[in-house]
Design a protein around this nucleic acid. Sequence first.
DNA 1: ACTTATCGTAAGCGAATACTTACATTATGA
DNA 2: TCATAATGTAAGTATTCGCTTACGATAAGT
Lengths: 197, 197
Amino acid sequence: MPRPDRTDQRRKELIPIIAKAFAELGYRRATTAKLAKRCQVRENILYRLWRDKKAMFVAAIDHVYQQSADTWQRILAEADDEAGPAERLLAYEAKHYGESGLHPIIFAGLSETNEPEIREAMEKMYSRFHGFVRQQIKEHRKQRGGSVEPDAALCAWAIVGLGNVANISRELGLLTGSGRKRLFAQVGSLLLGGQTA
Amino acid sequence: MPRPDRTDQRRKELIPIIAKAFAELGYRRATTAKLAKRCQVRENILYRLWRDKKAMFVAAIDHVYQQSADTWQRILAEADDEAGPAERLLAYEAKHYGESGLHPIIFAGLSETNEPEIREAMEKMYSRFHGFVRQQIKEHRKQRGGSVEPDAALCAWAIVGLGNVANISRELGLLTGSGRKRLFAQVGSLLLGGQTA
DNA sequence: ACTTATCGTAAGCGAATACTTACATTATGA
DNA sequence: TCATAATGTAAGTATTCGCTTACGATAAGT
């Protein structure tokens, strides 16, 4: 009878644009008017796709993780070097970390944790990032054998922190590209391997 | 003749209150009306002390570093254990990191770097934090002797990152207090000492 | 062809917010 | 005591922003 519902597809098309806008402008500066303009639609139709601005932002946060996860899957699939998966991921991030330009969304999210829905989305995102990294560390260490310290979970948090400062120093121009690369490569592998007992 | 100018003193009195407000509410939610109310004055007089809201925020950012620096000076002065200065600072932060409640200001600042003045203030703040930590690492390693890797500057960034995730995980409830403590103690000392060649 | 729900356009509305203006009051030093 | 500038009070304003409403256009299945 009527036209078929393309809502889902439309959402998928627009999220990358919206995420980019939130990344570049932050949560408040990314007004619904600007979001609509970038999407080349009227505000109205954004509100048909998401309940409110908050929901658009939550979708953007999810998109940040999804984007990274997809990239990592690709790297892991490409495989067969002499380097292990964790080392390959680390090397990749050393080169390309932050290239998507999406990470500032995280900064924006951190100052909007008053909103329960945003807080929840941030919580989920960080948990996923941490869980993934932790898993990689564990597998890497298992391969190598021998007891290692500190705990993989702690090292995973430290690596997440590494990503964070990398973003910050990029944003503020405190580290050059090669500096960030060395940061990932040297400190990253220290955390990955830990200290053999 | 007229009344003496107490502007400077007034600023010093109000900054802690304003900083706390920015920390709790973020930059945008901390409206000038709310700031004034917390300070128990009218908006008007805030505008006599600072050019605009941006200037209030910049002052709050400076206050964050100042607060930490003062605390650290105290710790360093208290001294004479068997533990070195760097180790004492690390142990202190492991216990008390984030207690001031001021750190969320940093999150707020990170999504306001579009404003050149705020960006500059954030840049200065991070440089100072990093410089201080780097110095501590260097002195610690000199005491111990022997060549160490990775570079102190890189490890300093990693420790700054550690502080960051500590804040984030506190904010989002992703790590318990004891988890944060172990994070500082274990990963912190790994980064402090580095890997002896 | 005709019904029906999706898609697009345009305008507007109430609330909030950064900042201002005008004016009354106070306390100081000569 | 008196001029002077600091301190406080109150109200207002222009703008912005999130969100809504009303309506016309489009495209599908029967």
